[in-house]
């Protein structure tokens, strides 16, 4: 890793790119997968191999050969047993490979790898990134309340060890939305929406609006009138020109007049 990379690692809590690879990562971030793959292919070392694998995941057209090459590169980095940041990133991308990138995805294998990553490398930024993905796998489509509850207990323990606030928020949102689809179960959903509302400034505007409105709505459904009124008022205050602003003001007034 180059000196810039070391500085980056200190700043972001994980590996930054080596100077000679930085441009290839920039190309990849800008969606120029083919150019980035060619750049990484000219490079050497573990970073270049992870970068090339990532670029191959985005290469068009998607072919079995390209995707297999990406998987082989990632497995190679993991198997070297160096346990550095590139190995953790490779483990994360391998989990995603099985979940979303393979021509025939294997969600169960992806889920198993995400869980293993979260257990083995708790608190690492790439393990933190796995938390919302595991939440999606466990909750997004779960309609069985008993199974949902069983998973909740386990996931709460996992979330305790996630250090990245953004990953925690994303996982909570998946969890809360799934609880709303389950019934809706406002009692399950509200604590998560409350936690998200406390960090509302960090959310993108459209999500911030949705979360604030939902806190009020779930509070109202649970008979928490005061919290509901305050929630709707906060929404109308922060999003006065939103299409839901009039509705928020009306609901607050109706609640007060009851």
């Amino acid at each position: 890793m180059g000196s810039m990379g070391m500085l980056g690692a200190a700043a972001a809590g994980m590996a930054g790119p080596a100077v000679e690879q930085a441009e290839a990562w920039r190309r990849l971030a800008a969606g120029e997968a083919a150019a980035a793959a060619a750049d990484f292919a000219r490079g050497e070392g573990r970073e270049a191999r992870v970068g090339r694998a990532a670029a191959l995941l985005a290469a068009q057209p998607r072919t079995a050969a390209t995707l297999e090459r990406a998987r082989t590169l990632l497995e190679g980095v993991v198997e070297e047993q160096l346990h550095d940041d590139w190995a953790v990133m490779a483990e994360y991308l391998l989990a995603r490979w099985h979940q979303a990138h393979a021509l025939q995805p294997d969600p169960a294998e992806g889920e198993r790898r995400l869980l293993a990553l979260l257990e083995a490398r708790a608190g690492h930024p790439w393990a933190d990134a796995a938390a919302p993905k595991l939440a999606i796998a466990w909750f997004a489509a779960e309609r069985d309340a008993a199974e949902f509850a069983r998973r909740e207990e386990r996931f709460a323990e996992i979330l305790e060890r996630v250090r990245d606030p953004a990953a925690r928020r994303d996982a909570r949102l998946v969890w809360a939305d799934a609880a709303l689809r389950l019934g809706p179960d406002h009692a399950r959903a509200l604590p998560h929406f409350r936690a998200l509302a406390e960090e509302a400034e960090a959310l993108r505007p459209s999500l911030r609006a949705r979360v604030l409105f939902q806190v009020a709505e779930s509070a109202a459904a649970l008979g928490l009138g005061e919290e509901a009124v305050e929630g709707w008022r906060r929404f109308a205050r922060e999003f006065p020109h939103d299409a839901r602003a009039g509705e928020a003001r009306r609901r607050a007034e109706e609640m007060i007049s009851r």
């Binding site: 980056g8 972001a12 990562w25 985005a58 790439w126 996982a171």
Partner: peptide, 28 residues
């Protein structure tokens, strides 16, 4: 997935743009 991975690496250089918000949108 790929753009966010690259953005997270670039965050080490103080670059990468709104990678957290992009991940937020992707997860949602």
């Amino acid at each position: 997935d790929v753009a966010i991975a690259a953005g997270r690496v670039l965050a080490g250089l103080g670059e990468g743009g709104a990678v957290e918000r992009r991940a937020e949108t992707q997860n949602e």
